[in-house]
Amino acid sequence: MGFHPDFRYFRPGGRAKGEIVLKIEELESLRLKDLLQLDQIEAAKLMDISQPTFHRILKEARRKVAEALVDGKAIRVSGGDYRFRNLCYDCRSEWGAPLERCPICGGISVSSVAREGGRGPPHRKV
Rank of each mutant, 00 (worst) to 15 (best):
M1N: 10
M1W: 09
M1T: 02
G2I: 13
D6M: 05
D6P: 07
D6A: 14
F7V: 13
F10D: 05
F10C: 04
F10H: 08
R11Y: 15
G13C: 05
R15Y: 09
R15H: 04
R15Q: 15
A16V: 04
A16T: 09
K17M: 09
K17Q: 02
G18H: 02
E19Y: 02
I20V: 15
I20Q: 08
V21T: 15
L22R: 11
L22T: 00
K23T: 13
K23G: 15
I24S: 04
I24W: 00
E25C: 09
E25Y: 03
E25K: 06
E26K: 15
S29W: 02
L30G: 02
R31V: 14
D34E: 12
L36I: 12
Q37R: 13
D39Q: 10
Q40L: 12
Q40Y: 07
Q40T: 02
I41T: 10
I41E: 05
I41V: 13
E42W: 01
A43D: 01
A44W: 05
A44F: 04
K45C: 05
K45E: 14
K45H: 00
K45F: 06
M47W: 04
D48I: 11
I49S: 05
Q51T: 13
Q51E: 09
P52G: 10
P52A: 14
F54H: 14
F54Q: 03
H55C: 13
H55F: 04
I57R: 00
I57G: 00
L58N: 12
L58W: 12
K59I: 02
K59S: 11
E60M: 12
A61W: 06
A61H: 12
R62P: 04
R62A: 14
R63D: 08
K64L: 14
K64D: 10
A66K: 11
A68E: 09
A68M: 13
A68G: 07
A68I: 13
A68N: 09
L69V: 10
D71R: 07
D71N: 11
D71S: 10
G72V: 04
G72S: 03
G72C: 04
G72D: 10
K73N: 07
K73W: 06
K73A: 00
A74M: 11
A74G: 08
R76M: 06
R76S: 13
R76H: 13
V77P: 02
S78M: 07
S78H: 08
G80K: 11
G80S: 12
L87Q: 05
L87A: 06
Y89K: 12
Y89I: 01
D90Q: 05
D90K: 00
C91E: 08
R92S: 02
W95S: 08
W95I: 00
L99M: 03
L99C: 01
E100A: 05
R101G: 02
P103E: 08
C105A: 06
C105P: 06
G106W: 11
G106K: 01
G107I: 11
S109P: 07
S111W: 05
S111P: 00
S112L: 14
A114D: 07
A114Y: 04
E116S: 01
G117M: 03
R119Q: 11
R119A: 13
P122G: 08
H123A: 05
H123L: 04
K125C: 04
K125W: 03
V126H: 11
V126S: 05
